[in-house]
Design a protein around this nucleic acid. Sequence first.
DNA 1: GGTTGACCTGGAGCACGCTCCAGGTGAAAT
DNA 2: ATTTCACCTGGAGCGTGCTCCAGGTCAACC
Lengths: 120, 120
Amino acid sequence: MTTVYTPAEAVEETGFSLDTLRYYEKIGLLERVARNAAGQRRFTEEDIGWLGMLRCLRDTGMPIATMLRFAELVRAGDHTITDRIKLLEEHDRQVQAQVDNLAERQRYIRNKISYYRRVR
Amino acid sequence: MTTVYTPAEAVEETGFSLDTLRYYEKIGLLERVARNAAGQRRFTEEDIGWLGMLRCLRDTGMPIATMLRFAELVRAGDHTITDRIKLLEEHDRQVQAQVDNLAERQRYIRNKISYYRRVR
DNA sequence: GGTTGACCTGGAGCACGCTCCAGGTGAAAT
DNA sequence: ATTTCACCTGGAGCGTGCTCCAGGTCAACC
């Protein structure tokens, strides 16, 4: 059974808006999505999986230009796997930096809250 | 000794660009900064401290509109301390959500890296 | 068979948060 | 004295990432 997803279902599954899905296809983040006879999009399981990856990269702050490079590596085939690893490792370091930075800022904020509680 | 900071020094201390400092003053995130005889800004220790707070809120993703509300509470005096606590606690929850979300996405990315390493 | 509603395309517009620019002032270094 | 340099103001412009709109096509339900 090969499940396909209507645009509405893809929105539901991925959390991206329909406009965003169209935009991602337009700029090439998403390869040309299949259409039915009426020209309406029918997303495959694979599309949905790829969108999951994109969601993850987006939510961790990867710029679209970088996601686009990643998308091109994926399309280019298996010989780019080493490059993909490099790209993701670099991104992982940036995510780690974000987490660390956020944690430190959070301490500051919590101290401020404590201070306010004391002087209230 | 009351230290004052030239614009260049304030940039150095806060990590904000001079344009950003002027912008923050223009929109009221920063109260009208003192000037010398020639009309040039002279930031006080207090300004620098407040900018540290702003840096912290910005870096944890607080929108400028919310920072503005916070700035207004601070200006309004001590009777707003309870409201400030509320605002910061709410923000702290959002920061926590960011950290949690980031950590989860990071797991996904790391799994992907592991997968690529296995198939490389 | 009419109305509703999901979807299509191309392109314009928008929100956010700065960033840059033109044209100018005033003090400091050579 | 003049060049340099940091700074000033008001306002325009920009990069990112969507989001919205007009005008139209189908399909599906009553």
